[in-house]
C-alpha cells in the first residue's frame, strides 16, 4: 500500500512537471505552427529567437540592472521586432523560390544566430541572478503529500494560459486574425480581397516570436540555465509538438505541447532519462509517418 502511494506520488510529480513543460512547448509550438500556416515554411530559426528572448532579458538584468519584469517585457518586444526583421531579410525575398531554398535559408539563419549568441555571451551556461527575481519563485506553493508545486510552476502555467487565451482572441476575434486565417487558406484570394499579405505575415512573425521570447524567459527561470544551444533542442521539440497536434492548427499546438511535455516527463521518469530528447524525436517521427495531419489538424491535398 505504501509502495503504491509512493508510486502514485512519483507519477503525479512527473505529471505536474510535464504539464509545466508542456505549457512552454505549446508557447513555442504556436510560433512554428502560425508561420507554417501562412507561408508553409518550417522556420528553423524560431528556436533561436526563443534563445535570444532568454538572453536579452538576462543581459538587461545583469548589465543594465533593469528590474526583471521590465526586462522581460522589453525582451519580448525586441524579439517580436526581430521576428519581423528576420522575415524581411531572409524569407521574403524567397517567397517565390523553390521550397528547398527557403528551407536551406531557415537552417542557415538558425545556425548563424546560434553562433552569434555563442560569440556574444560565450559557451558557459548562465542563469538569472537570484536577487533580481521575486523571492517566492522557488518556494513551494502547494504541497500534496510528496507532490510539490513550486511558485515558478504556477507562474509558468498562469502566463501560458493568459497568453494562449490572448492568442485565441487575436486569431478569432480581430481583423488581423481573420486575415491570418484567410491567408493560410489561400494567399492569392486573400490578396484579392484587399488583405496586405506581407503585412499580415510580418504580424504573424511578430506574434510567434514574441510568444517564443516569453517561453525562453520562462524556461530560463525554470531550469536556471541559459545557453546558446537551448533554442535549437527546444525548437525541434516544439516543432514535434506542433506536428503532433497538427501543423497549422493553433489549438493543435497547445494540445501537442501539453501531451509531449507529459510524455517526456513520464518517459524520463520511468523509461530512461538518457533518451529524454529521443522521446520527442521518436514521437515526432511516428506521428509524421502514421498520421501526418496530426491529432486535430486538417489533412492537406497537393494542388497542381
Amino acid at each position: 500500500m505504501e509502495n503504491l502511494l509512493e508510486m502514485s506520488s512519483l507519477f503525479l510529480q512527473q505529471l505536474v512537471n510535464g504539464i509545466t513543460l508542456g505549457g512552454v512547448y505549446a508557447l513555442i509550438a504556436v510560433g512554428y505552427t502560425m508561420v507554417y500556416g501562412v507561408i508553409q515554411l518550417i522556420n528553423f530559426a524560431h528556436g533561436e529567437i526563443y534563445m535570444f528572448g532568454a538572453f536579452l532579458a538576462f543581459a538587461m538584468v545583469t548589465v543594465f540592472n533593469v528590474p526583471f519584469f521590465m526586462a522581460a517585457i522589453l525582451s519580448i518586444i525586441i524579439c517580436a521586432c526581430f521576428g519581423i526583421v528576420l522575415d524581411i531579410i531572409a524569407y521574403r525575398p524567397l517567397r517565390k523560390a523553390p521550397r528547398l531554398a527557403a528551407l536551406i535559408t531557415a537552417i542557415g539563419m538558425s545556425l548563424f544566430l546560434q553562433n552569434l549568441a555563442l560569440m556574444i555571451w560565450g559557451g558557459e551556461i548562465q542563469s538569472y541572478p537570484r536577487e533580481a527575481l521575486p523571492a517566492f519563485f522557488y518556494q513551494e506553493a502547494i504541497a500534496f503529500g510528496d507532490v510539490t508545486i513550486t511558485w515558478i510552476q504556477v507562474f509558468i502555467l498562469l502566463v501560458t494560459v493568459i497568453f494562449m487565451a490572448t492568442l485565441h482572441f487575436i486569431i478569432h476575434r480581430t481583423a488581423v486574425g481573420t486575415a491570418m486565417r484567410a491567408i493560410s487558406q489561400d494567399k492569392t484570394t486573400a490578396a484579392l480581397m484587399g488583405i496586405n499579405v506581407n503585412r499580415v505575415i510580418s504580424f504573424t512573425f511578430a506574434l510567434g516570436s514574441g510568444l517564443g521570447a516569453v517561453a525562453g524567459i520562462l524556461v530560463g527561470l525554470y531550469y536556471n540555465a541559459i545557453f546558446h544551444m537551448m533554442g535549437f533542442i527546444m525548437g525541434v521539440k516544439a516543432f514535434a509538438a506542433a506536428v503532433l497536434g497538427g501543423i497549422g492548427s493553433v489549438p493543435g499546438a497547445m494540445l501537442g505541447g501539453g501531451l509531449l511535455g507529459v510524455a517526456e516527463a513520464l518517459g524520463a521518469g520511468y523509461l530512461s532519462s538518457a533518451y529524454r530528447d529521443g522521446i520527442s524525436y521518436g514521437v515526432m517521427i511516428l506521428i509524421i509517418l502514421f498520421k501526418p495531419s496530426g491529432l486535430i489538424g486538417r489533412s492537406t491535398t497537393e494542388r497542381v
Binding site: 545556425l111 548563424f112 544566430l113 546560434q114
Partner: peptide, 12 residues
C-alpha cells in the same frame, strides 16, 4: 568555436 556562424551566413 563560432565558425559555424560563417556556414550559416553562407547558406543564407
Amino acid at each position: 568555436n563560432a565558425r559555424y556562424l560563417i556556414y550559416g551566413a553562407t547558406l543564407v
